[in-house]
Design a protein around this nucleic acid. Structure first.
Lengths: 152, 152
DNA sequence: GTATATGCAAAGGGTTTGCACGGTT
DNA sequence: AACCGTGCAAACCCTTTGCATATAC
């Protein structure tokens, strides 16, 4: 796979090549993490006439032919990535909203276990773990100690 | 923790005890997996006057005091669980939309690694893995073989 | 009595859809 | 020429918010 045959990917599955599809794919690659709204803005830098509904429809197509993936970080819009990117997973802090990307390697044995135990084939780039980042979790630990101290 | 001191939980954090809060908590416990909309319907079986916005506000409060949690399975509404429930994670099939609940134990070492390597404190009940369930992944494998056969 | 919680209605994000037009094949 | 893809606008789902009233404390 590579950027040079992005159009082949589309054609093989019966889709047409359009400027919009090229622009959206390039925007996703450039942004590395992009919501549909952000991708729209990026695309409009070159082609201001492109509509948001086209972004949605295009992302759906690009995802189907395997050129992009998405993950849900937070409650809002999903983020899209080019599959060209090194595969990574997201650690989403629900306290401060920070998002850390870490190598997918850390999930490898977990993913393998889901396969062997449940036959489940994980979409690794879709993984988002929610919780507390380093800063927030140490902060909470400190508060807890303060609380305990106050109670004595 | 237990159902008997749900009201203490609320009071300790400065919240008041209301019929709505009790009904929502009970509905979540009864449903085991419930979207806000489903919880509304369940609550309205007893108290038809309760409003959806109350469901949202109440779930937020119940989550803050640690009586319920939520997970995102699929793109739509989140699902709420009572924390009383045995902790489980969700395996969401993006092909056929099936959702399987499996013991959180399978994620234990992965979660431990996120903690040691990145200081990240995972909210285990929030974990949703996306991918292909056993049936769909074997079906895809079979198709692949058929395709390969056709090419020869 | 006072502050919080609720119901209602309206607004707000994010996403999808119907339709006529335009572009790719 | 036929069909697919796009822009536009409206509709849709899910969620939040402002405000007046009702309720827990």
């Amino acid at each position: 796979m590579g950027t040079e045959d992005w159009d082949r990917r589309l054609r093989e599955q019966g889709y047409r090549i359009t400027p919009q599809r090229q622009l959206v794919l390039e925007a996703v690659e450039r942004l590395r993490h992009g919501t549909p709204e952000a991708i729209l803005v990026e695309v409009q830098r070159t082609a201001s006439g492109v509509n948001l509904s086209t972004i949605y429809r295009t992302l759906e197509v690009l995802e189907e032919v395997g050129l992009v993936t998405h993950a849900h970080i937070g409650h809002g819009a999903p983020t899209y990535h080019a599959v060209e990117e090194e595969i990574h997973i997201h650690l989403v802090c629900d306290r401060c909203r920070a998002v850390e990307s870490v190598s997918a390697d850390v999930a490898a044995s977990f993913v393998k276990r889901l396969k062997s135990d449940f036959g489940f084939d994980t979409d690794i780039s879709h993984i988002s773990m929610h919780g507390a980042c380093r800063d927030c979790s140490t902060r909470e630990r400190n508060w807890q100690e303060v609380d305990e101290g106050a109670q004595r």
